[in-house]
């Protein structure tokens, strides 16, 4: 069987996902044994921009009209489109700005020269195209990426954890920073996969992997308010990585 033809693309973001892929140093040769990488601008000098692809891995959020066009073109030429990283899956850090008027942002950041940028509200990929599978994370976890490739090569849709960071945190037997230390921790509503890395170093979960499927925002907010955090603090933390997420939009619009 021919190796699947693959492209790796980056919209607006920090390129962290592509760096994670390149950091799979011990596995890179094995990856090349099973994937035929046709396009990967961050890593290769000769890229095929036209060929049909079996899998497109796309990182970053869409923040410019050109990116929307480009993304749709990628979608057209790919059998599967996989969103990599929190920006691609949830909008990420860039989407924090969506509430502020684009004009004000341009003026403040770039001054008069800002007029040359055309910008639209930062959105995740699924706002524009069908996304077949998502690997979230800021950045993605190397192990999850490798697992996803292994499943795809075998012809399966990958299975990644859908439960919350709390589960992994408990399995690591960390002292609960939310319950025992009353810290602003988003572990209960953030999707696992990081093996509760920050928490294992005593740092509360900032929600960088995005919300779980059925995030109970109302309960999380109540818990944090009871611990003395203001709605403003909580809102800021919740919006840092996944502001466009429907579950957050719904919660905050209702208020």
């Amino acid at each position: 069987m021919a190796k699947p033809k693959v492209g790796v693309f980056g919209m607006t973001g920090c390129a962290g996902e592509q760096i994670v892929i390149l950091n799979c140093e011990d596995e890179l040769m094995d990856i090349l044994k099973v994937l035929d990488i046709r396009s990967f601008h961050t890593a290769m000098s000769e890229n095929d921009e036209q060929c049909d692809l079996d899998i497109a891995f796309v990182e970053g959020a869409v923040v410019q009209p050109e990116e929307e066009v480009w993304l749709k073109k990628i979608r057209k030429r790919s059998r599967l489109l996989i969103a990599l990283g929190t920006c691609a899956v949830w909008g990420g850090v860039a989407a924090m700005k969506n509430e502020v008027s684009p004009q004000r942002l341009k003026d403040e950041v770039y001054g008069p020269r800002g007029q040359i940028f055309k910008s639209i509200p930062a959105q995740p990929l699924h706002s524009f195209v069908k996304v077949d599978f998502s690997v979230s994370g800021c950045p993605i976890e190397k192990e999850q990426f490798l697992q996803a490739i292994a499943s795809l090569v075998h012809g399966d849709i990958p299975v990644l954890p859908k439960y919350a960071v709390c589960t992994e945190c408990k399995l690591n037997e960390n002292t609960c920073l939310l319950v025992e230390k009353s810290e602003l921790c988003l572990g209960p509503i953030t999707v696992a996969g990081c093996n509760a890395r920050c928490l294992s170093y005593g740092i509360p979960c900032c929600g960088c992997r995005g919300p779980v499927e059925e995030a109970n925002i109302a309960s999380e907010v109540e818990i944090l308010k009871e611990k003395g955090f203001t709605l403003g603090d909580i809102r800021n933390q919740l919006r840092t990585y996944a502001a466009p997420a429907e579950v957050l939009q719904t919660y905050f619009t209702k208020r």
Binding site: E27, D30, I31, K33, V34, L146, Q147, I149, A150, S151, V153, H154, V159, Y163, A164, C166, T167, K170, L171, C176, G187, P188, I189, V212, E214, N216, A218, S219, E220, E222
Partner: peptide
Amino acid sequence: EKCLSCGTCSMVCPTCYCYDVFDQLNLDGK
């Protein structure tokens, strides 16, 4: 309404015994 579905109670429970079984493939797909 209050429950977060975070799984904490099950993980710490001395009698919760449910487990999930799955295959973890290597990159060769075999």
